[in-house]
Simulated assay, not measured.
Amino acid sequence: MSEGETPYVTIEQHPTGLVTWRERKKQATREALADAAWKLACEVGPENVRVDDIAAAAGVSARTFNNYYSSREEAIFAQRIRWAEEFLTVVHSRPGDAPLHDTIAGALLEVRGRREPDKATIRLVAATPAMQGEYLRHSVMTEFALAEIVATRTGCDQLSARVVGGAYALAIRAASEYWLRDDSDLPFTDFLRTALDRVAPAARGLEASVRASHPHREADSC
């Protein structure tokens, strides 16, 4: 190597860079599988989608598919729940002392308002019993995630966090169901905002209860 020449270093010689590259590659593969699964479900119906077809459409093997998803239903539904990851990112970006309802409702409306769902397509996919089961499974996961947010941001007990977090999860589910039944052009966020408004008193009441039970906590944060 001549003097002043920049040494050629492969990515394998940079452990940190290699991990980052691998994670990006894994995420890209996961998303490609989810996109392929959703597209196939829309084209031929969820019940007619095969794992081999999803893998082939994503350019990977069926074995690789099994490294990312446990079933075709999970892969099909994965494309529809990307909003959940975006939601958590927005929530974590909000100040820790922001009002609970403003944080959760604001983040939900922001994320769900970015892209209007295709109602006709979702109706088609949601009509499949297996997909209904996957939807309920993810609803439970969403409920626990919301309960954790409530507990972390208020410092309340686990039961209260589960109740209020469950109320937010139910608001999302109810808004989705009524939006799917509706034949007007009203956006999903209109239904979601109405449902979330019904949960606001519970969230504010919980915060008031925690402040009354732990008066020193608010003083310490000042």
Rank of each mutant, 00 (worst) to 15 (best):
R162H: 15
E74S: 03
L33P: 00
A219E: 07
R115I: 13
Q79R: 03
D190W: 12
H92C: 12
M141W: 09
I122D: 05
Y168Q: 07
T189D: 10
C222K: 11
L206R: 04
A130N: 12
A200E: 05
E134P: 04
F65H: 00
V164P: 05
F87C: 01
A202Y: 02
A219S: 03
R217E: 09
A37K: 00
V51D: 02
A57C: 01
V199H: 09
P201D: 05
V44I: 15
R114P: 03
R112I: 10
L108F: 07
T89D: 09
G59D: 00
D118K: 07
P99M: 14
A169C: 10
C156H: 04
R112T: 13
I11A: 07
L146E: 05
W21L: 03
A107Q: 05
D118P: 02
I104E: 12
A34D: 01
Y178L: 12
K25W: 01
G166I: 09
S213P: 09
A171V: 11
H101T: 11
M1E: 13
P201E: 07
W83N: 03
L180R: 03
V9S: 08
G113K: 11
P201G: 03
I149L: 04
D53G: 01
A147L: 03
E148A: 05
D185G: 12
L18N: 04
E47T: 11
Q27F: 00
P95G: 15
L108Q: 07
I76W: 01
S93Q: 14
G106C: 13
I11P: 03
K119C: 04
R217A: 10
T89F: 09
G17V: 14
E47D: 14
A195Y: 08
G59T: 00
Y178K: 08
D97S: 15
E86Q: 07
E23W: 07
S209V: 06
L40G: 02
H14S: 15
D190F: 14
C156P: 03
T128H: 12
D102C: 14
E74T: 02
E5K: 14
R211N: 10
C222E: 11
E207F: 11
H14N: 15
R24A: 15
A41T: 09
T64A: 00
R24Y: 08
D220T: 04
Q27K: 00
